[in-house]
Computed example of a mutant assay.
Amino acid sequence: MNSEELLQKYRAGVRFFGYLQLRAIDLSGMNFSGADFMQADFSQANLVGTHLTSCTLEEANLTDANLETADLRRVTLAGADLIRANALCADFSLAELTGADFTDANLCTARLIGSNLVGAKLTGAILLGASLMGASFESADLKGANLSCSYLYEADLSTANLEKVALNRALYGPHTVFPVGFDPQAAGAYPIMAGVNLSGKDLSGTCLPGVNLEGANLSGADLRNSEMCWANLQGANLQGANFTGTNLSGANLLGAKIDEGLLDGAYLCGAILPDGRMRGVDFGYLKAEWR
């Protein structure tokens, strides 16, 4: 079945396409939301930007498929093969991915928020900058995976295999669960929580909206171009930190030490500033409202 025949059937109301041989098919940009492709063969298929929301792809073969920017929210991919798949910027939020095989897959900047990856295989997978908040990795195999710069808030990695995993600049919070005895900071990850010491750390370009860094030590940290709107920075040590291009709108900096911080170009609309502690700051064109 070619792409035109498949799309015509879908538009006519057909939703079951299980077991089909769709190897190397081009369905880029098409909408098949809610369809059932159980055990279908999508190996080497072009699924760039394809809308597959709430689809069933249980035990489907997507080896070497191109899923770049595909919408896979709430999809069922249990037991599916995604070996070497390109899922750059794809959205797997709230997806059922138990036992799926992502060996050597490209999941850079992909969204797997709240996804179930219990027992999934991600050996050698690249998850650079991926959003993994609230994802469950119980019994998942992440050996040799690259999770650098990923977001791990509230993720459960308690029983995951993290052998040789890269976590450089990955961000985690107080509710992220790692295996017993595993030291995420030794692996290069940064804790984002109240009172933490992130002095001199590179947090440039990170997404930190609404985080609680009350009393944290961020002296000398690089926070250029970061998103920190509504962040709680009360009493934090921000001396020497670089906030160029940082979005601090609505942030609470009450009592923060920033007399030597570089705030030139920071966006502070609606921010609560630390009155009396601003001497020596290079504001450039910055106009902030004191409260």
Rank of each mutant, 00 (worst) to 15 (best):
R111N: 15
F37I: 09
D202V: 05
D41Q: 07
V177P: 00
F17Y: 14
I113A: 02
G134I: 15
L52K: 04
M228S: 04
S115Y: 04
N46P: 08
A90L: 12
G261Q: 03
A186G: 14
T53H: 04
T103N: 11
G29E: 01
N168M: 11
E154A: 10
S136G: 07
F283E: 03
N197H: 09
S139V: 11
A60K: 01
N247G: 11
A135P: 04
L213M: 05
V118Q: 08
C108W: 03
P184G: 04
R169L: 06
A236V: 02
H175P: 00
T76Y: 04
N237E: 03
C229S: 13
G280N: 06
C149H: 13
A125Q: 05
D101Y: 04
R11W: 13
V180I: 08
K121F: 12
L167I: 06
A256T: 05
R279F: 14
Q44W: 12
A256P: 03
R84F: 14
A100H: 07
L94V: 12
L198S: 05
R84G: 10
C207T: 10
A87Q: 01
M228L: 15
P274C: 09
T109Y: 08
L248Y: 03
I83P: 00
R291Q: 06
A85V: 06
R277H: 11
H51S: 14
N217Y: 08
G265F: 08
F32Y: 12
N247W: 08
V177I: 13
L132M: 12
V48A: 15
F243N: 02
W290C: 00
S249D: 03
A100N: 11
G270M: 10
K257T: 05
A40W: 04
M38H: 14
G124T: 00
F17R: 09
Y190R: 05
G235L: 10
L262Q: 02
T69D: 11
A145S: 11
Y10D: 12
L142W: 09
L147E: 02
L203V: 11
A251M: 06
V196A: 03
Y172D: 00
F42P: 02
D26H: 08
C55L: 11
V177E: 05
S226T: 12
C89V: 14
R15E: 08
L112F: 12
L218N: 02
A65L: 03
T53F: 07
C207K: 01
A140Y: 09
D202P: 07
L147W: 07
L152W: 01
S226F: 03
A130M: 11
F182C: 07
W230K: 13
L128D: 09
D282T: 07
A12T: 14
T98C: 07
S54Y: 03
A236R: 02
Y190D: 01
Q234V: 15
G129V: 10
L117Q: 07
Y19V: 07
N247Q: 14
E4L: 15
A12M: 13
